[in-house]
Design a binder for these strands. Structure first.
Lengths: 106, 106
DNA sequence: AGAATACGTGACCTAAAGGTCACATATCAA
DNA sequence: TTGATATGTGACCTTTAGGTCACGTATTCT
């Protein structure tokens, strides 16, 4: 989970996730072209960090590498760490649970 | 929001938040004593980052500084950024909203 | 085969992060 | 006022992060 937090710390990496969210399965070059202010190598280094955190999953296809967004680690961070602090989030889940299980309308 | 992400990136800082979550309103020295492997100065630097991100709110009281945890920025990150990626989180909020607004039980 | 394309690696540089220390300041207590 | 306590500051050091580049490898196309 440490790797996830560290990966999300950089704005460029969050922007990469945003880009993949908008269009999943891009190649490295396609992605790099959207970051004109940075070379392909810079983007690749960020991708390495994102892959390390399992936020981006690479699929080799011939000479290209397709990049897929993996939201699972983000969900885990939300559920295992953030929910502890985000009272509204927690109470939302509690309320939802009560709603579902009928605990509230006893 | 950038400051929040960056602040959460370091494990020591997350541990500080955990400590304040367990016991809010500690002084700097009290807090520092729990981090035996680091000097007070190291802890203070981390505190500066947390305060910068508004995750820790300092209240000067005489010669001591009381540290309070502020979960609001974490909630904002959850709502404005993470919810986009965490499908279960999002659907939970949607369900809750339906529950509150009565959209569901029409 | 040869050329173009797509990605990978290692060296390298600069700036920033993490951490310690000596020292300064403010406050309380006697 | 003197001494102890609590925190703040700036200099300093070491490691890491972010970024570029020259070059190498694999793959596709003709």
């Amino acid at each position: 989970m440490d790797a996830v937090f560290r990966a999300l710390a950089d704005p460029t990496r969050r922007e990469i996730l945003d880009t993949l969210f908008a269009a999943d399965g891009q190649t490295v070059t396609q992605l790099a072209e959207r970051f004109g202010e940075m070379t392909r190598f810079g983007v690749m280094k960020h991708l390495a960090v994102l892959e390390e955190a399992d936020l981006v999953i690479p699929v080799r296809q011939g000479r290209t590498k397709l990049l897929y967004l993996n939201p699972v680690p983000i969900e885990q961070v939300a559920n295992r760490w953030i929910s502890k602090y985000a009272a509204r989030f927690t109470s939302s889940l509690v309320a939802l649970d009560q709603h579902i299980t009928g605990t509230e309308e006893a």
